[in-house]
Write a protein that binds this DNA or RNA. Structure first.
Lengths: 135, 135
DNA sequence: AGACTAGTTTATAATTATTCTAAAGTGAAA
DNA sequence: TTTCACTTTAGAATAATTATAAACTAGTCT
């Protein structure tokens, strides 16, 4: 994703393309593969990569703004920290608890044959499959 | 589950049946249906039910000890608090984000037809399906 | 039964992740 | 270029959980 697209992406979501947002967006979205991270890991990576320090609160703000805009998804991982994913399409995850690493699984690679009905008055919003790994 | 069984359960897990552990175990395991809770909710319920106050740290200790012994499972719920489940068999969950409520799904009620291979050198430990609900 | 000891409970402090606050800064519309 | 709503920022506040260390107790050994 080019810089111009980053700007479009931000503007189309009514997010002012500030220096910080552009830098974080470039870091997150200008890559081939999907990227999984926590706010802590993102902060470390940004600090290493860049000269200008972005406040932790700004990273929280920005990540949440990107999530609200649909540019990031939050991943179902049990544990203390919240994981985010640049892949916002419907998909699933492997989780390697040894390395605390997430790996995407394409929605087409999992087929569910039988699924229960939602309880009274409720509807199914989405189905997330989580495959825990061991060595 | 009777009191004698609670004592057996504790002893078989090498957990001394202290007053607090027995009280918590009775509260958790002497019921028909599976029970979902957070440490906070359990603490409130125990405080309401019982005369003797159990320290919050003890509840954390005990819940973790029960989990380590395989008497409780931790549920995959994104969010700040950790959810536990008295159902330790292989099963899945509905999650109602409106009410922050978990509902068990029997393992037989979900059939997965196609599943990806585990990455190099890894094996599949287990598969958890999580169905998010909406109104 | 009495005393010992390792395991347990407890109140409180510490830690960790996240959110709040309010003052200073800044994009972009006019 | 002025203006102002939106942002950023440092630091305080909050919330969940874990650590600490002193007091307590179940079970064992006599």
């Amino acid at each position: 994703m080019k810089k111009i697209d980053i700007l479009k992406k931000l503007r189309s979501s009514r997010l002012r393309p500030t220096k910080q947002r552009v830098e974080i967006a470039k870091f997150l979205f200008e890559r081939e593969k999907t990227f999984h991270f926590t706010v802590e890991s993102l902060n470390k990576l940004l600090t290493k990569k860049s000269t200008s320090k972005i406040a932790l609160a700004t990273i929280y703000n920005t990540v949440h703004a990107f999530k609200a805009a649909g540019h990031l998804s939050e991943v179902e991982v049990r544990g203390n920290k919240t994981y985010f994913d640049t892949n916002v399409s419907n998909h699933h995850h492997f989780y390697d608890s040894e390395t605390a690493e997430l790996i995407d699984i394409d929605a087409n690679d999992i087929v569910i044959q039988k699924i229960p009905k939602a309880p009274n008055g409720k509807k199914i919003k989405n189905v997330e499959v989580f495959i825990n790994l061991k060595n």
